[in-house]
Simulated assay, not measured.
Amino acid sequence: MKNSAFNKILSYFFRGILFVAPIAFTIMVFQAVFVWLDGLLPFNIPGLGVIILITGIVGIGYLASTYFMKPFIELFDQFINKIPLLSLIYNSIKDLIGAFVGEKRKFNKPVMVQFDTLGKILKPGFITQDDLEKLKLPGHCSVYLPHSYNFSGNILIVSNDLIKPWEINGTTAMKFIVSGGVTGMDEM
């Protein structure tokens, strides 16, 4: 009898942890970002740092999208590309962010890569290049396979006959993959 009550209490405890931990962690991260941003200002008005940051990013985005700024952006990119280590970091971050947002999104072609001859083992991913003939790999494509619960993944060169289209949108596919197959099922 006591063991049964203890197991129920333990079960409730773990359910509580599943509910409270993500909320608490999210609040802690946002609070740390708010405090850090507000600490950058010489005066103490809570939340002003975040408002300034968001306003600044929107303003820079607006300016960057104007015809007038395009030559300056290209000039800046050319300057960065002349500095070896800096260009590697800058372009990698720019490409990664551009893959998720902007006009040139890359993770919009979800696919399943077949890993066995019977087609019973599939790995979800995203086509990043449809045709690799310029790399002397005709009939192949590059597929990015994100890792679950991580900001990393693998790029595979795959024969086109091992690729099966996955008929869902890219955002839903990414949620499904990154969550380890837990999130995104309602949207499919």
Rank of each mutant, 00 (worst) to 15 (best):
G153H: 02
L88T: 14
I93F: 15
T171G: 13
W166M: 12
E167R: 11
S92L: 13
K164H: 11
H147N: 14
T171K: 15
F79R: 10
E103W: 10
K120Q: 12
I121E: 07
Y144Q: 02
L122C: 00
I168R: 11
P146G: 03
N169H: 08
I127T: 00
D77M: 13
D116G: 06
F79S: 12
C141P: 04
G98L: 11
I177H: 11
A99F: 09
S87K: 13
Q129M: 05
F176G: 10
F72I: 03
K134V: 04
T128Q: 06
K120L: 13
G98M: 10
T128S: 06
L135C: 01
P110I: 01
L88A: 12
N81F: 06
D161R: 09
S148G: 14
K94I: 11
F79L: 14
F100M: 11
D161K: 06
L86W: 11
E167K: 15
K164A: 08
K104Y: 12
M174T: 08
L96D: 13
T128L: 00
N81H: 11
L135I: 00
P146K: 05
L132E: 04
L145R: 05
G153P: 06
P165I: 02
F76G: 09
N91P: 12
I121R: 10
V111N: 02
G170V: 09
Q129Y: 02
I93T: 15
V178C: 12
E103V: 09
